[in-house]
Design a protein around this nucleic acid. Structure first.
Lengths: 258, 258
DNA sequence: CATTCTTGTTCCGTTATTTGGAACTTTGTT
DNA sequence: AACAAAGTTCCAAATAACGGAACAAGAATG
């Protein structure tokens, strides 16, 4: 409910950080002044504080960028993610078995946040997708995750979604989404039939613990031209087995909740 | 000069974030209360604000962790790093030619911040080293970077270093460091002879632009048992060539400064 | 070269937010 | 059920942020 507006001192500060992060081109002071509605003096002090804290940096060419401390903090957060760690070997196996890109994502509100990704081509690098989020209603992982939520959690969530059409097949109503989720509940498998990006489809399976404090999913993504829908469907058991295996590992490694 | 103490509202807030990040085990409220010297009420509100902003999250088991927004911001910062992008193909080539781990790091004050890493074994994952920093005086990249700084920048920097012995060969005095840097300036190549970690050595070369607004380095790291010092030395031309190639690409792709 | 306009930085009285003690509620334990 | 510990809310007092204006530094213009 907050995030970009700016309630309180911290909110305003983070708003500035966000504006810098969102900027298409490295912003200078005057650019920020326009984008953040604040008097010069105030903005200047805010930025000074942010620089002091290492969240923002002023480069020699007088442009502002995100500070190293953000990366430093984030990389720790990522390493420490027990869930990601537990799931990793399973993602690799799934990739070995299918040869296609495998994603791990967690549901955060109405967004899917990608924690990990395994793909072959782009061998060694921090992958673009990791650390990014996508809407839940048009991604395999998102729909898989939604499908395991209890009704009283799900309904208000769906009401919050501002549906947006990405492709011809994007689901753009709560009713249609509910229907789709019903189907997913039958099979335990979700598909993204080019709903987010034309030419890309995926198959996904939900991952969750008993009290639904963790609601996530894995997916196998492929371009339609290489992998036919029928092929994707053939991976149903495979991905379901992987998801189950991760669930089991979670029970063992992340402390079983009674 | 700040970073963990906490001047101003933002500083205090970031201090809390840092404490959460540094915690060995997921902290609960009472843990934070001990670690941050603050009254309960105050701390509680600070954390609430941090959660509101997505910098911290309260997990269902009542422990606190870093929020997703940090990863989200950091991943953008990383992707946008023009320098990293330019250097990447060269890192891969160097890895292909040597078979050993290749690092890319930038100098930030007296620390080396690792922007990228290419290694074979640990094939596909966000690598632990990325996003972390190490002291400049006991790493190849750090010493390579220091060696290209003008004297008036270098001296105050060295004065700020609090030397710490990591191994038998760690440089622990400003004088010794200066001497070492003189040698590096002769050859344009730096070595880390097990100065940071026993059994690990590396060869490094500096990367910098004309006005020294970018001071960085690349290194090839290997365990001593597999790669003898003589072998490491043989890679001198290779790594120097790579560094030069990156410097050239920077001139072309990052706008030539007159 | 002087002038003007733009951009960036500092200052300080006013204003609004943070502070922290205490009271209160919830959760877990004997 | 009673008790203790952990976590949450409240509000007058303290403090830090605010923002207008004055100031400084560069860049563009005549």
């Amino acid at each position: 409910m907050a995030q970009t507006d700016g309630t309180g001192t911290l909110g305003k500060a983070m708003h500035v950080v966000q504006v810098i992060a969102d900027a298409q081109t490295p912003p200078r002071f005057r650019d920020l002044e326009q984008m953040v509605e604040q008097p010069k003096g105030t903005l200047h002090r805010q930025i000074s504080n942010l620089i002091e804290e290492g969240l923002v940096e002023l480069r020699p060419d007088q442009t502002y960028g995100l500070g190293m401390r953000l990366m430093s903090l984030a990389s720790r957060s990522w390493e420490r993610s027990k869930f990601r760690e537990v799931a990793e070997p399973h993602l690799h196996q799934l990739h070995r078995e299918t040869g296609e890109t495998v994603h791990l994502g967690v549901l955060r509100g109405i967004e899917v946040f990608y924690l990990d990704k395994v793909e072959s081509v782009q061998s060694v690098r921090m992958h673009s997708q990791i650390g990014h989020s996508s809407p839940c209603y048009c991604t395999g992982v998102g729909k898989a995750a939604l499908s395991v939520l209890p009704r009283q959690t799900l309904s208000p969530l769906i009401d919050r979604i501002a549906f947006q059409r990405f492709t011809d097949s994007t689901i753009i109503s709560g009713k249609a989404l509910e229907a789709e989720l019903d189907e997913i509940r039958q099979t335990g498998i979700a598909f993204d039939n080019q709903e987010h990006e034309a030419g890309i489809h995926c198959i996904a399976a939900p991952i969750f613990n008993s009290d639904r404090s963790l609601v996530a999913g894995i997916s196998i993504t492929a371009p339609v031209f290489r992998v036919a829908p029928s092929k994707l469907t053939q991976w149903s058991e495979l991905i379901a087995a992987s998801a189950d295996a991760i669930v089991d590992d979670i029970k063992i490694r992340m402390g079983p909740k009674p």
